[in-house]
Nucleic acid binder design. Structure first.
Length: 210
DNA sequence: TCATTAACACGGG
DNA sequence: CCCGTGTTAATGA
């Protein structure tokens, strides 16, 4: 395991736990677009993200997909945690947004560590809380805001995670992730450009003031 | 009323 | 040429 990876872990977990992670956890790498977990697959390990960003999707009964939330460094998926404990099938799909490194923790360790390590308990609790809040924000956005507000929320979220005000994505990709059509995305983006809030290029959006 | 679908032209890479 | 983009017109919820 790299020094960089370790330093991230040391700020979150106690040394004895990290030792266990080194022996029992498995470091895995994914590239942009890789499907990390798919609908209906059994989850046997719980991932902790050490590098990169993962996007989590949910599919409705008609097969339409929508982006739920992003996961980034040191975060984990509480969905995965509860699935692991009961050996259930995944309700969501996770795709790597960029280059991603995760530590896969085998499910038999999860419960054991909960009693053994306070830092692990805290991490799990905090992780559940963060995911829940993020989910609430997504629901609020989808249920109560119109598409133009959702688009702005989407762009801001991209900006926050990439740390850059230049967003690299096609209108089509954005439309897919927001579960709408490209026509609408193009129209709304054009509107925002006319308002002087961003600039449009091919496969690129430069955010000015949102 | 506003989203979706299909269709088309434009142009940059 | 292919793909992303901008627009329009018809249709749908």
């Amino acid at each position: 395991m790299s020094v960089d990876t370790l330093s991230i872990l040391y700020s979150t977990f106690e040394p004895a736990l990290i030792k266990e992670m080194e022996t029992d956890g498995e470091l895995r790498h994914f590239s942009e677009g890789d499907v990390i977990i798919d609908y209906g697959k059994y989850i046997r390990t719980m991932p902790i993200i050490v590098e990169g960003t993962i996007k989590v999707f949910r599919k409705d009964e008609h097969g339409k997909e929508i982006l739920l939330y992003y996961l980034s460094s040191t975060e984990s998926c509480s969905m995965a945690y509860s699935c692991c404990l009961e050996a259930k099938k995944s309700e969501v799909k996770a795709i790597a947004e960029d280059e991603v490194q995760i530590i896969a923790i085998p499910n038999n360790k999860l419960d054991e560590w909960l009693c053994k390590y306070p830092s692990w308990k805290n991490y799990i609790m905090r992780s559940f809380n963060e995911r829940f809040l993020e989910l609430l924000r997504s629901i609020e956005s989808i249920a109560f805001h119109k598409l133009d507000e959702r688009l702005i929320y989407y762009l801001k979220e991209k900006q926050r995670l990439s740390g850059s005000s230049v967003i690299k994505a096609s209108h089509n990709t954005i439309a897919d992730e927001m579960a709408t059509s490209r026509v609408v995305v193009s129209r709304l983006l054009k509107q925002l450009e006319n308002e002087g809030r961003l600039l449009l290029y091919r496969n690129e959006i430069k955010l000015l003031k949102l």
